[in-house]
Amino acid sequence: MLATSRPHRQRRALTYHIASLVALLAFWWLLSYYTNSAHIIHGASALPSPLSVLNAIAGLSVFLAPGTPTTLAHGLAALWQNTLVSAERLLGGVLLGAAIGITAGLLLAWSKLVRLLVQGPVLLVRTIPLMALVPLFLAWWGGTSFGILAFIAFAVFSVVVISTVEAAGNVPPELVNLARTLGAARFRIYRTVILPAIVPAVIGGLRVVIGIGWALLLAGEYLGAQNGLGHVLIMAEDYLYTARMALIVVMIMVYTFVLDRLFTLAADWITRWMPKD
């Protein structure tokens, strides 16, 4: 049979994706229906149904201010507010860490001496278990929002700096030689050959880091935040509000998906010159 055209194939793939998602949702619903009639933990359903997860939105109203009436509008506002707080920490940390990491990586790759001097300590830093650093960062910044941001920035930095140095070392030597034979001096080669050539590798490193970013954010917010999605989640645990917990998890899934799509779009555009596979 002849191969079908690209848009046609994509549309068919989308149909399958939606179908399997709907099936999964139905399965969740059925399972929650069964478990709720059988297993109740302290009055809360162990597996909240999709409907009760939606209903949990209104319950978030208290996070706007104590005593706020419980309405859907207030709940949505609270969700939005805490989303913004978390997004600021996550994206702020990623951007700050990436900026410092890329700059430091480029400086390291420039000089062999500096690279040799710093390589040891950088490798040492990589062995630090990141989660073990959360309390330390919170202690340094007194549990402020910036403490969590700084923690994420540090984690991002430690990944990005290494992928930058490695990428700079992997630039094909013939490209550097080409620039040299065309008369380019060292700094120009750095700016016009090394820098653009490492972009795909740096983007790859960033993608990994954004993936672990959520985990780092939640860890920081569990331990030392008075707001944010992680704070809402850990508070729900205190009262066994399982529907609310599921709501936050679902929201994080949605955000992760959207963020990943946007990142992929941007990355694909930036590296549009790259031969695919």
Binding site: P172, E174, L175, L178, P196, W273, M274
Partner: peptide
């Protein structure tokens, strides 16, 4: 120099 490898700035 025209190099043996395809040396072009891909970007």
């Amino acid at each position: 120099v025209v190099f043996q490898q395809d040396a072009l700035f891909m970007w």
